[in-house]
């Protein structure tokens, strides 16, 4: 069971502050989802309902936006989120081998979280660092020039 109210006063105030800058409240929908995710790592059904109340929208309307964007998480994620680039330049430069290494080390596949909640593994489109392919982002850190030799050590630095 989820708690009755999960958005803190700080979060609610932050969301109200955002919509003041727009001609209509609903324009703050994406920003509101970002605020929630910053605090909870993901956006639960309860959080969707509460955001809907703040923005005078229906929960379904909020959810249609939330599920549209690939970086709004509607399922829980681990403490560290790995975004492995699977686009063309990284693919040419050895993405398949890197992906196999990461999946083997963490014993998970895409969209999954390790049982200790330490890592979630996702793909991401081209990271715009193609002259240093293959590349990935962990949380907000960019790692480039990945090799099957260096990728394990990089993952290990995230607790």
């Amino acid at each position: 069971m989820e708690p009755e109210h999960i958005l803190s006063d700080t979060e609610t105030a932050a969301i109200r502050e955002i919509y003041r800058h727009f001609p209509e409240k609903s324009a703050a929908c994406i920003e509101g989802l970002k605020v929630i995710q910053q605090h909870h790592r993901w956006v639960s059904d309860q959080a969707v309902r509460e955001l809907a109340e703040i923005l005078d929208m229906s929960p379904a309307a909020i959810d249609s936006v939330a599920t549209y964007y690939s970086l709004i998480f509607r399922r829980p994620v681990g403490r560290n989120v790995i975004f492995l680039c699977d686009s063309v330049s990284c693919w040419i430069m050895g993405y398949d081998q890197i992906a196999a290494c990461v999946k083997k080390q963490l014993a998970i596949s895409y969209g999954e979280t390790t049982s200790d909640d330490r890592y979630t593994l996702l793909t991401i489109p081209c990271l715009g660092t193609c002259d240093h392919a293959p590349a990935m982002i962990i949380n907000e850190d960019l790692h480039r020039d990945l090799t099957t030799e260096n990728v394990a050590a990089i993952l290990n630095t995230y607790g």
Partner: peptide, 11 residues
Amino acid sequence: DEMEPGSFKDR
């Protein structure tokens, strides 16, 4: 919003 695969110029 530079997201065209293989593009890294605006960065």
